[in-house]
Amino acid sequence: MSTESTTTDVAAQPDGEPLRVILAKLGLDGHDRGLKVVARMLRDAGVEVIYLGIRQTTATIINAAEQEDADAIGLSMHNAGHLTLAPRMVEAVKEAGLDIPVIVGGIIPDDDVIELQNKGIAAVLGPGASTDDVVAAVRTSISN
């Protein structure tokens, strides 16, 4: 069909298109200062941040990821629930048939970082991460 040859892959991420990243906090964790800082960092790096804020569930985040056609999910965690909640998010993403990375930021002990990575978390960002660190982690996670 002639239209086939002119239609490019609908899944391709063309150069220069803004990335769309969801930022949220799961469960009963109200400390959103970090999330707001990261939202600002990403915005200043040209990213379109879909800001969901606090007290979200994995189901809400999956809904948003589908409707917003997000390129990545960023979770901020400060209540020591990361070993439970973050892998649950990764599972939910898989179950929904989505192929997007989950990135975690927050207070994460070093020992836990390895475990999170083993459970499919694409990147872990700690306190003091610079704008460049955050943006690089997002871009690398998406392109992998």
């Binding site: 990403l42 790096a45 379109e48 800001y51 969901l52 809400t60 917003e68």
Partner: peptide
């Protein structure tokens, strides 16, 4: 920068899911 913070969903708890 061309970036944006899209924050309308947080006001739409009633319908979002």
């Amino acid at each position: 920068t061309g970036g944006a913070i899209l924050g309308d969903r947080i006001r739409m708890d009633e319908v979002i899911d």
